[in-house]
Amino acid sequence: MSAEVKVLSASTRTNLEALKHHMKKLGFKYFKENAGWIDFGTRLCEKYSGIHIDPSNHVSVQLSRKCIFSMIDELDSYDKLPEAKQAILDFYEAEGIKE
């Protein structure tokens, strides 16, 4: 049995590192890449299956097409969502993703 792993190009990896850096400046300290998505979170929580990004304080970004999901309960983080959205849109523009 083989597991297929999608390797990101060097330019995508660079653009993603720039996005991670910007999101960290906005207070999203944690991130996780999984199945073509990257989740940014402000804090961690413990579940039965281990420690995860708090589901009520995160922004999820689809890496191959424009798709953003957020759930923010913290007012400080909520106020930063317009700047986070712009950083994500800048990532998509750098990747050449229009749809």
Rank of each mutant, 00 (worst) to 15 (best):
S2P: 03
A3C: 05
A3P: 00
A3Q: 08
E4G: 07
V5P: 02
V5F: 10
A10K: 15
S11P: 02
T12K: 15
T12Y: 04
T12V: 11
R13D: 09
R13M: 09
N15F: 06
N15H: 15
N15G: 13
L16F: 03
L19R: 01
K20G: 00
H21P: 00
K24D: 00
K24Q: 03
E33H: 03
E33Y: 03
N34Q: 13
G36R: 08
W37C: 01
F40Q: 00
G41W: 00
T42Y: 01
T42F: 01
R43S: 11
R43I: 01
L44N: 02
L44E: 04
L44T: 04
C45L: 08
C45D: 05
C45K: 11
E46H: 05
K47Q: 14
K47I: 09
K47E: 12
Y48C: 05
Y48F: 08
Y48L: 11
S49N: 14
H52E: 12
I53Q: 01
D54R: 03
D54V: 03
P55L: 07
H58D: 00
V59W: 00
V59N: 01
V59I: 14
Q62N: 13
S64M: 11
S64E: 15
C67N: 15
I68G: 03
I68H: 02
F69E: 09
F69T: 10
F69W: 09
S70D: 04
I72Q: 04
D73N: 14
E74W: 00
L75Y: 04
D76K: 11
D76L: 11
S77R: 06
S77Q: 06
D79R: 13
D79A: 09
K80T: 01
K80H: 02
K80E: 03
K80L: 10
L81M: 11
E83W: 03
E83C: 06
E83I: 06
K85D: 09
K85Q: 11
A87K: 07
A87S: 15
L89H: 11
F91G: 02
F91Q: 05
Y92N: 11
E93P: 05
E93I: 10
A94G: 09
G96P: 13
I97N: 12
K98R: 15
K98G: 07
K98D: 14
E99Y: 13
